[in-house]
Computed example of a mutant assay.
Amino acid sequence: MTSLDPRTAPGPDTGGEARRRSELGAFLRRRRERVGPAEVGLPEGTRRRTPGLRREEVAQLSGIGVAWYTWLEQGRRINPSVQVLDAIARTLKLDRTERDHLYRLAGVPSVPLDAPATAPGPPGQQAILDALTPLPATLVTARYDVLAYNEAYAALDPGLTLLPPGDRNVLWHLFTAEERLQPLVEWEREVSFMVAQLRAEFGYRMRDAAWTGFVRRLSEASPRFAEMWARHEVAAPAARVKSFWTVDGERLGLRATGFAATADPGTRMWVYTPEDADTERLLGELVGRLRSSGPAALLERGARSGGGRQDGAG
């Protein structure tokens, strides 16, 4: 690879693979900027104009030619081997999710580029969700489209459930709804993690017009989403403790646990279990109020009370 001449480098893509290679280049640049020289045994120096490693340093540490690595970041039509990708992944200190994402973007044949289109869950899912009340539970696609939910989830996030069924997308709601409709306490932390999961899933679906259109529309609607998306961070779904605001400004501590749906591996059932007795009590009260008045009245009553939030929605 070190013998390749940059003057004869393959040109950029002009066909359907251009987007994938452009994503690969951007992902490599972002990950390279994240690794400090000291982390890989190099001196910091005083003449660095950009954060992280230089291209030539990544190439040297990975045992590949500088020109060849540069072409990868430029989106040139070259086909890296698994061995080369492994070396780059080690140099850039990628975790397992990031490494899988790198393989997909590089078009490694052993990693599927496309996933089946998401379909609604099989009959019976709603009955399972309903049986979980008073635990909030919802069925969500890899793109965060909400397919189904139970009463406890509606009490937890009434603003989302008031949207028309086709518009019920968790990320769209979190990035575009007004602050009083935002349920998350640690908004920045949780939403950035969700965007990283979306980016990892997007690696499978870059040829899917529905996915590319969704990302484009949300980027246009929310500069904050566009900024997070441009970080090229990737993450895998994980159980985690999340804090939610009630409509009255009370804080709930809930552990979110996801279960893959057998009909579509990209769809998960998320179940939220209380972390303490106060959360369990407040959830029960919210469900009772939802049943007696509905989600719109629940929100209106919360707005009239003024709530007690001390943090914004990010």
Rank of each mutant, 00 (worst) to 15 (best):
E98T: 00
I64T: 12
V146A: 06
P164N: 09
Q126R: 09
L4T: 13
V170C: 07
A59T: 03
R143L: 11
E300T: 11
E233R: 10
A106G: 09
G314M: 03
L282C: 01
E44V: 14
W270T: 13
R207K: 09
R19G: 03
G45M: 06
G294K: 02
V40D: 03
P158K: 04
S22Y: 00
T273P: 02
F259K: 07
R99F: 07
P120W: 01
W187V: 06
T273N: 04
P158D: 05
P80I: 05
A115I: 01
G65H: 04
W229T: 04
G25R: 00
R30T: 00
D208T: 14
E17I: 10
Y204D: 09
E186P: 09
E233V: 01
A297M: 07
L102S: 02
S243P: 01
E73W: 01
E179R: 15
V35D: 00
T97S: 08
F225L: 05
E178H: 12
L53R: 00
A89W: 04
L147P: 03
S110A: 15
D248L: 12
E220H: 14
L156R: 09
E275F: 03
V215G: 10
G75N: 03
A117Y: 07
T279K: 01
D311I: 06
R104L: 07
L299W: 01
D278W: 08
A152D: 05
T257L: 08
L28S: 00
V185Q: 07
G308K: 14
L160R: 08
V108E: 13
A26Q: 00
A210N: 12
L24P: 00
L299C: 04
A115N: 02
P295V: 02
R231E: 14
G307Q: 08
G203W: 01
Q182D: 09
A230V: 04
A137M: 06
G166Q: 15
F175L: 11
R291A: 13
V140Y: 01
R207H: 14
A115K: 07
R29I: 00
T176H: 09
L160H: 08
E227Q: 12
E17Y: 07
R268D: 08
G258K: 11
E151I: 04
A235F: 06
L85Q: 12
R304W: 09
L53P: 02
D114K: 10
P37I: 02
Q310E: 15
P237M: 08
T97N: 05
A221S: 15
L181F: 12
E300D: 14
G65L: 03
S219E: 13
F193G: 08
P165Y: 07
V82K: 11
P51T: 02
G11A: 15
P274N: 02
A200G: 05
